[in-house]
Design a protein around this nucleic acid. Structure first.
Length: 716
DNA sequence: TATCCGACCTTTTTT
DNA sequence: AGGTCGGATA
């Protein structure tokens, strides 16, 4: 099929984008408007019309999944092999560049990527060593502070401290952290990006090489780029390069992890000759669903602005169900799936998604689905390579690979427990610092010099024996990674340890280790150096989406965040209540509230034919029960698109339960007045009757916890 | 050194 | 409710 034919099924706007001849193009692509289609067709078109060779194209995405899908879709459009094209995530591409230019980037050739967990471990260790223990500092907070700095492109030497003691001490940790990373050749996620940025800005000739190599740079989900990623792209994309970005400001839902929608405005400023193309025809949703989405998002004042339209029929109205509580809500959703969807053989279970704001909401649903024997799959949550047992095995693997991997040493030296506690570890760290060697080498030295108590000495010797044992096997079968992992899981005592774990949890873990062995089989028999490296890289850069049930036909459960980019015939959005959605942590700020609204917009626009919204009048969350009020987002939807579902017979079933206490007098979001503090908004309720405590955000006096029976609050 | 118990906290997630 | 963390205890 020729590309011209392929392009013939594009609409006018899509075609303009695909064949845009401007050097810089910003495509404002509404939900369901064929964003990926435009991106893939453009690449296909560029190659096929002979304008560009695949290896002068750089296409950047945010997830590995998106990268793979893009590659796949392009290849299905054109016969030219595209494996020399650079398609990948920011991190994947950065990693590739650093491996190629490690010397210029001041890295050792065998630098290791560490993940969030390893990073936190290092920070905790630093805190302990610097004796910050007495102060109430949260390692996680420091971690995000450090990553925030890095994502701003800031090194410790560039930090401007403004007399804030918290910052000062974070800076001290930052310095120490950087020293450790340099010493042990560790690179964290934000470091990957920052290094490449510095690599390019410090080596103009290298930058020029890549500028002329990557004639075309394309970016997906541009609204999700952070500051550093933008600077990175901006460096690479000179005025001469062809820079093509696709994004939707209305779907920006990741500002909390550094995404900057403003990058879309920046693009317009940096590339003034840019060509702006709006994709506004929606091919996904029925007209009712789209009207609801449009009405909702129009309440956000700061938008670039676009209006999605469709030539589809009105379709079914949106259903709004008012549940008595979260159990009733789950029951209604599951019943509806059973009666409306499962009964019709035209429909597959996988056409159907249940979306919610917080992952804690999935429990009740899972229970209800299991009760009915309906297959389901929960997306997100724990990722495969993040599981503790997987990281344990990988820890051994890393240590076998490199003695100098301190993070791996710490993880594994006393796991499974073999009597090397804090004290022994402290001595080893001390030794490592004074001899300026790795922990592993320090331990060896301590052992040689007989500086340790007999018990520790024996334990440590055992540990070295294990590592030695594993290594010997490696020599025999050095082309079988899966075998090596099997040997590790046995010799390390991990499997034995997990077998003893109570509650069946351990068997799951062993199962996961087996899966890791299977994943490693892909690398078996590859006659190439650095197999271990590439396996470890895959483990740290990819989340391991390979769940057995992925292809199975089942109901899809996920948070609204993880639903972005997907579409389903039937969508249920649950928990439309003030305080839950919009979440109470976002209610206080205009910016965050707008982001919640965009999240709701993302949710609504996932639906093709059928959309059901629910809220529960009473909800049990974190152990206590709250009375709720309907989400403002529902009130922003046009009444004409909504049908209210009457509460079914099940209401009676629940009325037998213990009656709600009078805590119901207060609702989240309610305005109250206090004699001294003035007026404020109820943020949270806890306990009941005389022990009921209320958290109120007072206009003048800030957030306070009050005991309801003493406070004498007046409802307004 | 390992384990158990109570205090505390609780949005969203990719690399 | 359920997980994590730190201190106290075996």
């Amino acid at each position: 099929m020729s590309v011209l034919n392929v392009n013939s099924d594009l609409n006018e706007q899509q075609l303009l984008a695909v064949e845009s001849t401007a050097n810089h193009t910003l495509v404002l692509a509404g939900a369901g408007s064929g964003k990926t289609k435009v991106l893939t067709h453009r690449i296909a078109w560029c190659i096929e019309t002979g304008q560009v060779r695949p290896d002068s194209i750089l296409a950047v995405t945010f997830t590995n999944k998106a990268a793979k899908e893009m590659q796949h879709r392009i290849q299905s459009l054109i016969p030219t092999p595209i494996n020399r094209m650079w398609v990948g995530t920011f991190h994947g591409i950065a990693h590739r560049l650093l491996r190629m230019h490690y010397e210029l980037a001041n890295l050792s050739p065998q630098f290791q990527i560490i993940d969030t967990d390893d990073q936190l471990r290092i920070i905790k260790r630093i805190l302990k060593e610097l004796d910050f223990a007495d102060k109430e500092y949260d390692p996680k907070e420091i971690q995000s502070r450090i990553n925030f700095w890095k994502e701003e492109g800031i090194r410790p030497k560039n930090v401007q401290v403004e007399g804030c003691s918290n910052d000062e001490m974070s800076l001290q940790i930052f310095k120490e952290y950087e020293a450790i990373c340099i010493k042990s050749s560790l690179v964290d996620f934000s470091e990957l990006l920052l290094r490449v940025y510095e690599l390019f800005s410090d080596n103009i000739s290298l930058l020029e090489t890549y500028r002329s190599r990557f004639q075309h740079i394309l970016v997906d989900e541009f609204q999700d780029t952070n500051k550093l990623q933008y600077r990175w792209l901006n460096l690479l994309a000179s005025q001469k390069n062809n820079f093509f970005v696709v994004g939707d400001d209305d779907q920006s839902i990741y500002s909390w992890r550094g995404a900057r929608v403003e990058n879309m405005q920046k693009f317009r400023k940096h590339y003034p000759d840019y060509n702006l193309i709006r994709l506004e025809q929606n091919y996904r949703s029925s007209s009712n669903i789209l009207s609801a989405a449009n009405a909702l998002i129009s309440n956000n004042p700061s938008r670039i602005g676009k209006n999605l339209w469709t030539n589809k029929e009105d379709g079914k109205p949106l259903m709004l169900y008012s549940a008595y509580n979260e159990l009733d809500e789950a029951r209604y959703v599951v019943d509806t799936i059973e009666s409306e969807i499962q009964s019709d053989h035209e429909h597959k279970l996988s056409d159907c998604a249940i979306l919610y704001r917080v992952s804690a909401q999935s429990r009740v649903l899972e229970d209800a689905l299991r009760l009915k024997g309906i297959e389901y799959r929960v997306y997100g949550g724990f990722r495969f390579y993040d599981r503790a047992e997987i990281k344990d095995v990988l820890g051994y693997l890393r240590l076998v690979f490199s003695k100098n991997d301190d993070a791996a040493f710490e993880r594994v030296v006393n796991f499974p427990p073999r009597g090397i506690g804090d004290k022994a570890l402290g001595a080893i760290r001390e030794g490592a610092r004074s001899y300026n060697v790795s922990l592993f080498e320090a331990a060896e030295t301590l052992l040689k010099n007989k500086e340790l108590p007999a018990r520790t000495e024996k334990a440590l010797n055992d540990f070295f024996m294990i590592i030695e044992n594993i290594k010997n096997h490696e020599v025999i079968d050095n082309d079988s990674l899966s075998e090596l992992i099997e040997i590790i899981s046995l010799k390390s005592g991990l499997v034995e340890h997990f077998k003893k774990e109570k509650g069946g949890r351990g068997l799951d873990r062993i199962e996961n280790i087996n899966e890791l062995t299977i994943a490693a089989k892909d690398f078996d028999g590859v006659e190439e150096n650095g197999i271990l490296e590439s396996f470890l890289t895959q483990a740290s850069l990819e989340s391991g989406e390979t769940q057995a049930s992925e292809g199975a036909d089942c109901i899809q459960l996920m948070t609204l965040h993880s639903a972005k980019g997907l579409e389903f015939k039937f969508v249920f959005i649950l928990g439309l209540e003030e305080g839950l959605f919009p979440h109470k942590r976002s209610i206080g700020s205009m910016e965050q509230l707008q982001e919640e609204r965009r999240l709701c917009y993302v949710g609504i626009t996932r639906a093709q034919e059928y959309l059901c919204l629910t809220h529960a009048e009473s909800r049990r969350l974190h152990g206590s029960e709250y009375l709720t009020s309907l989400s403002r987002f529902v009130k922003e939807l046009p009444e004409s698109t909504i049908e209210h579902v009457r509460i079914g017979g099940s209401f009676i079933d629940f009325s037998n339960e213990e009656k709600q206490s009078s805590e119901g007098d207060y609702q989240l979001g309610q305005i109250v007045e206090h004699d001294i503090f003035g007026s404020g908004i109820v943020l949270a309720l806890e306990g009941r009757r005389e022990s009921l405590r209320i958290q109120v955000n007072f206009e003048d006096s800030g957030i306070k916890w009050l005991v309801a029976s003493y406070a004498g609050l007046k409802k307004i």
